[in-house]
Design a binder for these strands. Structure first.
Length: 411
RNA sequence: GCAGAGGUACCGAAGUGGCCAACCGGGACAGACUGUAAAUCUGUUGGCUUUACGCCUUCGAAGGUUCGAAUCCUUCCCUCUGCACCA
């Protein structure tokens, strides 16, 4: 363990507090930071990741960004891949038990998780641990002893369990063990601080209790607010489809940000970007003063795309968006399908084959709704064939395009 | 184990022998409109085709009754509640 120097206490606290929902207990954090300042030993900051759903989105970025801040302050980031707990399935926020994964699947997912998280974290200074390393070796009596440390009433306090119980939805016994497993992770890595969304508060607190049982100084817990998804009401989650993935391509990323309701502009700005608080405040005032929120939203979209891709990509995405939706022109790059006239294919066949429609019925109904056009001409006939031109562009709905090129045309 | 309730399309939820490919709501998709992929209004939302009151597959699973079943019967699987049992 190398020793190092850290920024002064109040500076660290300022950074750590920014955007946090809760720090419990704050005095412990101060104490731990002071200790680290004196000894030069970094704090061990734990974040658990759930390998059952390895697609990270902006919701995850909130807590990852916080972890990054700890890294930048000189502390040790510890990422726990829940490969073992993935076999249990975390019930949070969902009313269906997850299908259990195999250990191999969770390992693989853990890898892609880390890849995506590296867009935010400093990947060189992360310790990655797989919790099967310690959980898989526990004996049944160890598990029972662990389970004895909490009561059923405590477990049922957890909002998700309580709700499901009240709604007479199934709760499997093994789900109750999840918080305990997560707590064992804290014991295993001797975490000083554990990060999580506010929905994790319960689990994080159990970690404190169990660490104490094992004679460790309990971790400080730091929760981050959950952000609303693109629909503006529900929290961002993959299950609800209101998310923006971290590896979303720049164009979709930009477009999805622009589609959020106006009231999310300020919260997203302040929690998802590095924009200084004064700047966010300025934007907030401008909007209240009647400035068109579109401009702020465009800036937000550019900022986010720039953070996850590049400034260049952000500009290109904005141009692409304007081209498509303001000027209603086809995009510059369109997938091309080579068509041989003698094949006798109907337009619908081609659209189905290229995935622009998922069934011919869908295609027919889209044609009926005048959602299909060729080179700007509306298609009305479901038995339409490809026009006898070297090349044409088919548009389905607002966003689906296909260039069809005749096979004999040289290019 | 006993008793009661229940399992319907992406989700929620109607439907208890034919008019059911299945009301309605959400979501999704589309058209109009718009600063926007927002809001609003309208439409579509199992598949196939010769687009038709046509054909095929679907209402936990498998069988059966019937001219005809999501709807009735049998067996099985699963969930919830209560009781019983219980280290």
């Amino acid at each position: 363990m190398t020793t190092r120097t850290f920024p002064p206490l109040h500076e660290q606290m300022d950074v750590i507090r920014r955007g946090a929902a809760e720090i419990l207990p704050e005095e412990d954090l101060v104490r731990k930071l002071e200790h680290s300042l004196q000894t030069g030993i970094p704090l061990r900051v734990k974040l658990g990741c759930d390998p059952s759903k390895p697609d990270l989105h902006l919701g995850h970025s909130v807590v990852l960004r916080k972890l990054r801040q700890f890294q930048d302050l000189g502390h040790q980031a510890i990422l726990i891949v829940g490969d073992f707990t993935g076999m249990i399935g975390d019930p949070s926020g969902r009313n269906k038990t997850r299908p259990p994964l195999t250990l191999e699947e969770t390992r693989e997912n853990g890898r892609t998780y880390f890849e995506q998280a590296s867009r935010i974290l400093d990947p060189k200074h992360v310790v990655i641990q797989y919790n099967s390393d310690w959980l898989a070796n526990m004996r049944f009596e160890d598990v029972i002893a662990l389970a004895a440390k909490v009561t059923v009433a405590q477990m049922l306090e957890r909002d998700d369990f309580e709700k499901r119980y009240r709604n007479r939805e199934p709760i499997s016994l093994h789900e109750l063990l999840y918080p305990l497993a997560q707590a064992m992770d804290s014991v295993a890595v001797r975490s000083d601080i554990e990060l999580g969304g506010t929905d994790q508060k319960f689990n994080l607190l159990i970690g404190r209790e169990i660490q104490r049982e094992y004679g460790q100084s309990p971790q400080v817990i730091l929760t981050m607010p959950l952000i609303a998804g693109t629909d503006g009401t529900e929290k961002m989650s993959k299950a609800l489809g209101n998310y923006i993935a971290l590896d979303e391509n720049p164009n979709d990323f930009y477009g999805k940000v622009l589609s959020i309701p106006d009231h999310l502009i300020v919260p997203w700005f302040s929690i998802l970007t590095d924009a200084p608080p004064e700047h966010v405040e300025r934007i907030h005032k401008d909007i209240l003063a009647g400035k068109n929120p579109r401009d702020a939203k465009r800036e937000l979209a550019r900022t986010l795309v720039a953070a996850y891709h590049s400034t260049e990509a952000a500009r290109a995405a904005e141009e692409h968006f304007d081209r498509l939706f303001r000027e209603k022109l086809p995009p510059e790059e369109i997938e091309t399908y080579i068509h041989s006239p003698e094949s006798g294919e109907y337009l619908l066949d081609i659209l189905l084959k290229t995935g622009l429609i998922s069934s011919k019925n869908e295609g027919r109904s889209l044609i009926k709704q005048s959602a299909v056009s060729i080179d700007g001409e509306r298609v009305h006939d479901p038995l339409m064939r490809v026009p006898d031109t070297p090349e044409c562009v088919v548009k389905v709905g607002k966003r689906r395009f296909l260039r069809i090129r005749r096979a004999d045309t040289n290019h």
